[in-house]
Amino acid sequence: MACFTVPLAEAVVLTAVKKIAFKRNADSVINEAEMTKNQKIAVLKEKFRILEKMLYGGSFLLAVEHLYHGEISLVPPFLTAMKNPAEIPEMLREMATVGVGMALLTTVVWAAGIGISALVKNLKKKSADGIGLSGAAV
């Protein structure tokens, strides 16, 4: 019914927080060792942009799916569950369970992707420095 609104709300909050926290635009990143504070902020901002895209994209696709199945109308109150007061508790329960679950899963998958990316980057850096995966010098 309205489960897509929870990831959408997370995306809107993330966008607002990102705009407040990162007011400056940073230059492009050249080398991690030579990164300035602004460049590190730009990298962090890019990571949050990826989460934003995941949340907005998923919410959009779910909204289209709900529209297709007739759970959303293009006239107020937009959510068909809002037309019948008896259906509102069921809608809120779905938002609290399915919607929150989807938002949390999306955020966990994003965090895992960022963590794996950092791990691979560190492994590449170690192998470039002459240290193998076993920790012994090559």
Rank of each mutant, 00 (worst) to 15 (best):
I20R: 03
A21D: 02
A21S: 02
A21T: 03
F22M: 07
F22A: 07
F22C: 09
K23Q: 01
R24A: 10
A26K: 05
A26C: 03
A26D: 01
D27W: 03
V29P: 01
I30F: 03
I30R: 08
N31H: 15
E32R: 11
E32I: 12
A33E: 14
A33Y: 08
A33T: 14
A33N: 09
E34C: 05
M35K: 11
M35F: 06
M35N: 06
M35G: 08
T36F: 09
K37N: 08
K37T: 15
N38Y: 12
Q39M: 13
Q39N: 04
Q39F: 04
K40P: 00
I41K: 14
I41W: 10
A42P: 00
A42E: 14
V43I: 11
V43D: 14
L44T: 12
K45M: 06
E46V: 06
E46W: 10
E46T: 11
K47W: 13
K47N: 14
K47Q: 15
F48K: 00
R49Q: 04
I50K: 15
I50Y: 12
L51P: 02
L51H: 01
M54H: 11
L55K: 02
Y56L: 13
G58S: 09
S59P: 05
F60G: 11
L61D: 00
L61I: 08
L62D: 10
V64M: 14
E65P: 00
E65L: 08
L67R: 07
L67D: 00
Y68A: 09
H69I: 03
H69C: 00
G70Y: 08
G70I: 08
E71M: 01
I72V: 14
I72G: 06
I72E: 11
L74V: 13
L74R: 13
L74Y: 10
L74I: 15
L74H: 10
V75D: 11
V75C: 05
V75G: 07
P76V: 09
P76Y: 15
P77W: 15
P77V: 08
F78S: 05
F78C: 02
M82F: 09
M82P: 00
M82A: 14
M82E: 03
K83E: 07
N84C: 02
P85I: 05
P85R: 05
P85L: 11
P85S: 06
A86L: 12
A86D: 07
E87I: 09
E87G: 04
E87P: 02
I88D: 04
I88W: 05
P89S: 12
